[in-house]
Nucleic acid binder design. Structure first.
Lengths: 231, 231
DNA sequence: GTGTGTCTGTACGGCAGCGCACTTTGCGGC
DNA sequence: GCCGCAAAGTGCGCTGCCGTACAGACACAC
């Protein structure tokens, strides 16, 4: 968890060049990297923070479509030559990230073909995860989706606990707060987690995977197949 | 409707080169261009056919996540250097398309930077439309989504009618056939369309837009902003 | 005509999640 | 200790969609 996985899998020389173009920044829960349609001035490579990608719906509500940690990056639309996004980027868990200006990012993409190839693969993975998420939203119950969300957040957080009120979690999942209360209550009865005043502790990771839909495994497998071991 | 919009907006010389690398093929309703995980051997630029991108869910069901006509292309994952997809490509409406081998497609992307830029923008649009669709699936009622689907199909079909049984339409939308019967019945009562034995006729296009959620306009606007008039 | 199969419409109980309102629980400040 | 407030839990009627079953309508072959 010392660096970002996308960067860490590149050749040493490329890494050095990229690090030189980055600035280490601290992101804190609640920070918003950008709003929908707003110009993206920096891309971010999380090291130990978690960032949600939310889409606004019908003026008021939001819905989380992707969650990014140190396995990914924020600002992928720049790969397509577009410096904005439909999504809001909201920091869910405080931590460090590497920040790079959009201009520098474009330059590095041109200069380092391996970097470009890697990020193209990441864009493919993101598109696939978006598709899986869409299907999951349509067909899977809140209980399943909550378990999946917790697994994905847990993977990215490093620690065994997650800080997030049921109110905010409900907004991520696109349901009422009460819905989260009930679903989380069921998981608590199964001794899979404990939830107290905004602090979620995973007690039984294996049980949580049991309680989740296959979308979790599918999403992870998609990433690993494209970007996993080969580097 | 004589050519594909993505190709048609390029410079004459580029178009000539691309056409030379293409083969005109007839696609017929029910044809499957590729299955999930299967190797993509050709990309397609529809001229007057309609193709759905479906994702399999839980072994049996399918769900449509994108619908592509002459404004788009099929095989966009090759832009990321990946020659497969999570989606199934199913032809919804017969017609002509330009077919290009994957190898030729890669070559043309390298040789024609304007082509590459154009398709990068298209990938951006697709990603955005996927995000909009995900939110729509979560929050909007079947009635709204049905109206949106019909609008998008109508735009891409050219004609005023669409051939599709309620059974298949239900699979696209991820609902029961009976759900489509009811929702379509309500639209018929409003004299917005008529539906008879697999043939849907749009009677009141403006009314249909009224009956749809804002996702339709948002999706169209996204395309037009990125790829519209400027060419 | 008659028969057959497909497509469409109707009916009904069940349930997940909704909106709303209210209570209980725990934490921090004074 | 007590208060104030945010977080979490409970109750209730409602609705949209589900699963299932069945009945009519139309197209086509013979």
């Amino acid at each position: 968890m010392l660096t970002n996985r996308l960067l860490g899998s590149l050749r040493r020389n490329d890494q050095r060049q990229l690090f030189a173009g980055c600035k280490r920044v601290e992101l804190r829960t609640g920070d918003i990297l950008w709003q929908p349609q707003q110009r993206i001035r920096h891309v971010y490579f999380p090291i130990d923070c978690i960032v949600s990608q939310l889409i606004p719906v019908d003026a008021h509500a939001h819905l989380e479509l992707a969650i990014v940690g140190n396995e990914g990056m924020l600002g992928d639309t720049l790969l397509f030559g577009v410096n904005n996004s439909l999504m809001q980027s909201l920091v869910q868990g405080s931590g460090t990230a590497l920040q790079m200006t959009s201009a520098m990012f474009r330059r590095q993409l041109e200069q380092l073909p391996a970097f470009r190839r890697k990020l193209d693969l990441y864009a493919f993975v993101l598109q696939g995860q978006l598709a899986l998420t869409a299907a999951c939203l349509r067909f899977h119950s809140l209980d399943l989706r909550l378990a999946r969300w917790l697994l994905m957040a847990h993977d990215r957080s490093g620690s065994g606990s997650i800080d997030l009120t049921q109110e905010l979690l409900a907004e991520m999942l696109g349901v009422r707060r009460v819905g989260v209360t009930n679903a989380a209550g069921r998981l608590q009865k199964l001794k899979i987690l404990s939830y107290s005043r905004g602090k979620i502790t995973i007690l039984d990771r294996a049980g949580l995977e049991q309680a989740s839909c296959a979308c979790y495994r599918a999403s992870e497998a998609l990433y690993e197949d494209a970007l996993g071991y080969t580097g």
